[in-house]
Amino acid sequence: MYLAKIFVTHKKSILDPQGEAIKNALHRLDYEAVENVSQGKYFETTLNCDSEDKAKQITDSICDSLLANPNMETYRFEIEKVGD
């Protein structure tokens, strides 16, 4: 079994209204040091497959077909072996 930790984030070139709203709230709380906030999504999927390569391939495909919208978002992931 493999565990994929997937991070989907807004492309940097596109205004992220959620990130902006959070940044403004942080500034109201006097966290002046905050320069930028980007909000994303985090997924964990466990994969029943027999090699790390296969797990990577499946995860790539999952991200492209459903988890990320390629117009607005990018993704990255980490794969680790779990269980036996």
Binding site: I14, P17, M72
Partner: peptide, 17 residues
């Protein structure tokens, strides 16, 4: 329709949330 790819682009959160 944008998610399916029948139309280009996508819709995201309103500018002012």
């Amino acid at each position: 329709l944008t998610e399916v790819g029948l139309l280009p682009g996508s819709l995201q959160n309103n500018r002012d949330m």
